[in-house]
Design a protein around this nucleic acid. Structure first.
Length: 288
DNA sequence: GTATGTACCTGTTTGC
DNA sequence: TGCAAACAGGTACATA
């Protein structure tokens, strides 16, 4: 389940393996992953053909490959997306959706966009080499040198929404997904349903620091992986899941206090927290 | 602008 | 054994 660390691993892999390559031809094998490109599948393929890849950049969970004409190939991995650099004669993956045939720096190789659940996608962003306009609304992530901590803290403390929902709001702070939100909240000993406007400045600063740290730690280990869906650009799985304290640990003892980790429904998914270290706020206590 | 809920998508697991 | 429901969850969009 790609979050910021996994996307960064993919970005770094693409930077190493495909920058400088020219796209010779594009095969769109399924239309859904290019649904956000207004040109349609054929227009998408035509817009990419002949272009040279000049870089590999990222903001939050989005990554893009700037092209030599000032446009960019914008990519989101969604739930199950992969970008794989493969030999030209490689057997196509079961869920191969888009194939870019490359020459030049990646002579004889293909870039495969593989995505089982197809929440991810690709599009050619007009004039998007520096920052695709399609993701101009996405906030900077905590690993970005220009991340404005004071501004984010102030905005969090102005809203009454639960702090976990805010952590997952990519316009506020990007890159944090369900897994790392639960881990950062566990580290900060804050329950995800605590309203942002009821937290102190120091608490929000500490929480965002933990969000940054948990993603930095994951990045150092090559990203998190829970199943075969996530592999990096060379097909190698990450293994950060061994270091998780909250996510996916329902019923297991908290590593800090020993209380059983609980799971609750949250936004059509799950939240994991320690009822000892992360007390449920009073206003929502009756619901749990 | 804020707050909240839901559709999208497929493979696997769980329950009857 | 077989089928249905639940589950995983990031993003865009709708609604109030």
């Amino acid at each position: 389940m790609p979050e910021l660390p996994e996307v960064e691993v993919v970005r770094a892999g693409l930077e190493r393996h495909v920058v400088g390559a020219r796209v010779v031809a594009v095969d769109v094998l399924h239309e859904r992953p290019v649904r956000r490109d207004p040109r349609g599948p054929q227009g998408f393929a035509l817009a990419l053909a002949g272009r040279r890849i000049t870089g590999a950049r990222r903001r939050g969970k989005y990554l893009w490959l700037p092209l030599d004409d000032g446009d960019a190939l914008l990519c989101h991995l969604g739930m199950s997306g992969q970008m794989l650099v493969q030999p030209a004669d490689a057997e196509p993956e079961k869920h191969l959706r888009v194939r870019l045939r490359l020459e030049g720096a990646a002579q004889g190789r293909h870039l495969h966009f593989v995505d089982q659940r197809m929440f991810g996608g690709l599009l050619v962003s007009t004039g998007g080499a520096v920052l695709p306009p399609e993701i101009a609304h996405i906030g900077r992530d905590p690993l970005d040198p220009l991340f404005d901590l004071d501004d984010v803290v102030a905005r969090v403390r102005r809203r009454g929404s639960g702090i976990k929902r805010q952590l997952l709001d990519q316009t506020l702070v990007s890159g944090v997904g369900n897994i790392y939100a639960d881990e950062a909240l566990w580290r900060a000993r804050i329950h995800g349903e605590r309203p942002g406007d009821r937290l102190t400045r120091a608490q929000v600063v500490e929480l965002l620091g933990h969000a940054r740290d948990v993603m930095t730690d994951a990045l150092a280990q090559g990203g998190t992986s829970f199943d075969a869906l996530y592999v990096n650009v060379n097909g190698e799985s990450g293994y950060f899941d061994r270091s998780l304290h909250a996510y996916g640990r329902e019923g297991e003892p908290c590593d800090r206090c020993g209380r059983a980790v609980r799971r609750v429904a949250f936004m059509n998914r799950s939240s994991y927290f320690c009822p000892g270290c992360q007390p449920v706020p009073r206003a929502t206590r009756r619901r749990s």
